[in-house]
């Protein structure tokens, strides 16, 4: 990638950080309430071992939850695509599920499933499966009619058409949905930890806040943002590998 592509966003981030530093240095809120970025960085670096120890469980919950989300999201999309009855039955339920406030759900899920990995995995899956399912269903719907007629003329059955035609057609849509989902994933895991956990960034933030360490709360926020960015970038890498034809648009 050309460096020019990153320049605008880097410049914007630098500008925001500079403004933050200036405002914090003015002492309007006090160093404990609003620490400057330099303090967040230096304290974060000092506590890097604990931050890492807590980032790993969060990452584990995120990835496990996302794996579940992909499985469930795909399975639902197949059911919805195969049957109009199932589509009409499932879609409203799925949409309503996305209106449930996480703030009420998360403590309940922890109550039901304990303080281990399971409730976090479930919550991450819960907040991320929907964009994946919707993207896949839309993607299947974009299947070319001529291609479908062609495959049918070749004697292809429904399942054959689904896997040879509809799934590959849906891939670019899927990756768009995946990117939306992944931005919710880390936050979902942190939220679940916030509601009750023994380790993880969520519980770390809560502890830091309770001991008035705003700088460490913000350092943990920085780590979670970095995780999300890394996962987001990873989706592009996977997409490149999964859709090699998309880059071969130009004639050779």
């Amino acid at each position: 990638m050309r460096p020019g592509r990153w320049l605008p966003s880097l410049a914007l981030v630098a500008l925001l950080v500079a403004a933050w530093q200036l405002y914090a240095a003015s002492g309007a809120l006090g160093d404990d309430v609003l620490p400057g970025p330099s303090r967040v960085l230096s304290q974060g670096w000092e506590h890097r071992a604990t931050l890492l120890d807590n980032a790993l469980p969060t990452l584990r919950a995120t990835l496990a939850g996302f794996a579940l989300s992909l499985t469930v999201g795909f399975a639902l999309s197949v059911l919805i695509d195969l049957s109009g009855v199932l589509r009409r039955a499932l879609m409203p339920v799925l949409i309503v599920s996305q209106t449930l406030p996480l703030i009420a759900i998360a403590p309940l899920v922890v109550l039901w499933f304990g303080f281990d990995l399971l409730p976090k995995v479930l919550l991450v899956a819960f907040v991320t499966f929907f964009p994946i399912t919707v993207a896949l269903v839309e993607g299947y719907g974009a299947t070319d009619r001529d291609s479908q007629a062609l495959l049918r003329s070749m004697g292809a059955g429904r399942w054959r058409i689904f896997r040879t035609l509809r799934v590959p057609t849906a891939l670019p849509y899927f990756f768009a949905g995946l990117r939306i989902a992944i931005t919710y994933a880390v936050v979902g895991a942190i939220f679940a930890e916030y509601a009750g956990a023994t380790e993880g960034l969520g519980i770390y933030m809560q502890n830091a806040k309770n001991s008035f360490r705003t700088d460490l709360v913000l350092a943990a926020v920085g780590v979670s943002a970095a995780l999300t960015l890394a996962l987001f970038a990873l989706t592009y890498a996977v997409e490149r590998l999964a859709t090699p034809w998309a880059r071969k648009g130009e004639r050779t």
């Binding site: 001529d146 291609s147 062609l150 495959l151 070749m154 292809a156 054959r160 891939l171 034809w245």
Partner: peptide, 24 residues
Amino acid sequence: YMPQKDALLPWRRVLDNLTLGLEV
């Protein structure tokens, strides 16, 4: 049958497009 648009599948290499009917 050859449809009005060529309906080559963009994600399959030419050879795999050519064998599609036989594969099915």
